[in-house]
Nucleic acid binder design. Sequence first.
DNA 1: CTTATTTCGGACAAAATTGTCTTAAATGTA
DNA 2: TACATTTAAGACAATTTTGTCCGAAATAAG
Lengths: 144, 144
Amino acid sequence: MFSKTCEHGIKAVIYIATQSMDGKRTKIGDIAKNTGTPEAFTAKVLGQLTRHNIINSYTGPYGGFDVTEEQMHNVKMSDIVSAIDGDAIFNGCGLGLSECNEQFPCPMHHKFVSVRQQIKEMLTQTTLSELATGLKDGKTVLLR
Amino acid sequence: MFSKTCEHGIKAVIYIATQSMDGKRTKIGDIAKNTGTPEAFTAKVLGQLTRHNIINSYTGPYGGFDVTEEQMHNVKMSDIVSAIDGDAIFNGCGLGLSECNEQFPCPMHHKFVSVRQQIKEMLTQTTLSELATGLKDGKTVLLR
DNA sequence: CTTATTTCGGACAAAATTGTCTTAAATGTA
DNA sequence: TACATTTAAGACAATTTTGTCCGAAATAAG
């Protein structure tokens, strides 16, 4: 569904958000430890997300990553996914055709549009706040 | 969504099915030409599908691939997908956790189960016959 | 039996994705 | 200023996925 890169990114952002709820910045080593993602690789992903203004980064002592209250509530899962994986999951053809639409549909097109829409809605309706809260309350887990 | 390998496989099977409707066997070169998939690679994928009894292969002159009337109606998209990509798309965690279930759900788990179910239903309810008919009637296309 | 045609199977190769390492830049503190 | 801490960025490496090639096996026909 998502690339490994994207999975790492989503997990990292959710973890950062739980820490931001406590007013704490999160260091990359802490993220790696608590999400099980590879440290250096995750650092690059977070760079992408910082450039997309999904999270914020600070260098130097007491630095790290955080999300503002505004980001916490405005950022949707779809924002993270499209920042990393692009919009193939929202618009791409299920059989990989370069163009596939109502006029020239692939054999699965009509079956596909509806599930693609479901995925899109699920991702655009899920906020960072929501997921971070579930994790913080111990209702969900990031490691397994 | 699906691996490239799986996309090639699905396209090839649908094309073979249209030819089988005319009582013809299909050679791998013909498949490659009409689906835009790489010939040698697609041949390997078809090997997997043959071993799963989704299609049939015949060596020698007048050989090739075909599907029986029974396969045409019994084979579901889900059979092709799970033969090639396994069942990650049906059961796997959206964030890649090795285990993710009601007891220990990842942050996206509850959002995910329903779309996964939609995908599963879509794939198990779509028959090869249905897709091949659409293609044969010119209502859908495989190349673009 | 020989030959032509076709898939089968395994080794090999290329490309994309995922992951690591090292050096630079930024920044807070003494 | 000097130093310790942290992210930034880019080169490099490993792994996985995708794709190619070639000889073997099967088989139909003369």
